[in-house]
């Protein structure tokens, strides 16, 4: 199970496992992604933050190869894999990159037990050859994600809570022994009180298994809990990115500032008569943030901001 650990962490961290370079994706007239470039490194987490429709899920789907870009390049361990490679290469890539989806209720098959969900990928990918190995493998995975095997393995999805199901989903992804984990809003359908536990689990997996983690969310506060680096996206474009603490602590782009100001804060009650001002402000920020500029400014050692629209 710890095969990934045998490679010295530093060696993995040095070169990105997956790299996107100027990725474009258009659906007819709609440009969903405009020049997205990012690197996923072992033992390192990157958060992709933005509103519904900003392109963050399209980006995840491209990385998971559930969608193909219309422009730009995609590299896996230095090899260009933008166009479909050989069947073997394709299979190796799909094994290396695993996804955890938003809806823990829809992503498990209701007629199969937890044991089945985890034993199958173990067997299919040759990580468990005998029945005994499967049982042990499943128990190991469940322990990994903080579930007690004797209480969980025989259960069906409907017998588990949302948080437990999401843990099974994470275990399912780990069963394949991937080196990249793409988590698309893994906590947004869970209770606030469950979220931290799942985020901590993802952080621990990243650390101990030296996985590259891509964490996708609209909640910039949770991004800070998991990821060393963050990319703020708006309308298919990266508007601000770099070290999470720098981006959050010294946000330069108005859209990042808007996102931060909208994080619920109990010390700042809403005031009646304020909505027109906030709505007007949000609208103005969206208008200003529309893609138009290719100019990017470096504002910190690892902190970049796209210049505002050059159209005006």
């Amino acid at each position: 199970m710890n095969a990934v650990m045998t490679v010295p962490p530093a060696a993995i961290a040095a070169e990105p496992i997956v790299r996107l370079d100027g990725i474009e994706r258009s659906f007819g007239l709609v440009q969903a992604l405009r020049g997205v470039s990012l690197s996923l490194k072992g033992g390192h987490a990157l958060a992709l933050v933005g509103e519904s429709g900003c392109g963050k899920t399209t980006c995840a789907r491209i990385i998971a190869r559930m969608d193909t870009p219309t422009g730009g390049e995609m590299l896996y361990r230095g090899r260009n894999i933008t166009r479909t490679g050989t069947a073997a290469e394709e299979k190796a890539y799909r094994r290396a990159v695993q996804m955890v989806f938003q809806d823990p209720f829809a992503s498990l098959n209701p007629v199969f037990s937890v044991q089945h969900h985890l034993a199958r990928p173990l067997a299919l990918h040759g990580h468990a050859r005998s029945k005994a190995e499967q049982v042990k493998g499943v128990a190991d995975l469940l322990n990994w994600v903080g579930l007690e095997p004797s209480l969980t393995a025989h259960k069906f999805p409907h017998e588990l809570s949302g948080g437990q199901r999401q843990r099974v989903n994470i275990a399912r992804a780990l069963a394949v022994q991937p080196d990249v984990l793409v988590a698309d809003e893994p906590t947004s359908m869970l209770d606030v009180s469950i979220r931290l536990g799942i985020l901590e689990l993802l952080a621990r997996i990243k650390q101990e298994r030296q996985l590259a983690l891509l964490y996708i969310t609209h909640d910039i506060a949770t991004a800070a809990h998991v990821a060393e680096e963050v990319i703020v996206m708006f309308a298919g474009q990266m508007v601000e990115w770099g070290d999470t603490l720098s981006v959050i602590g010294h946000a330069r782009h108005p859209y990042t500032q808007l996102l931060l100001s909208a994080v619920p804060d109990p010390d700042r009650p809403f005031v009646a008569g304020d909505s027109a001002r906030f709505l007007g402000h949000a609208e103005e920020v969206r208008r200003l943030s529309r893609p138009s500029s290719t100019e990017v400014n470096k504002v910190g050692p690892n902190h970049f901001v796209r210049a505002l629209g050059a159209m005006s």
Partner: peptide, 9 residues
């Protein structure tokens, strides 16, 4: 989950 190291805006 709160924003760490960030004074509330």
């Amino acid at each position: 989950p709160q924003l760490p190291g960030h004074p509330p805006v």
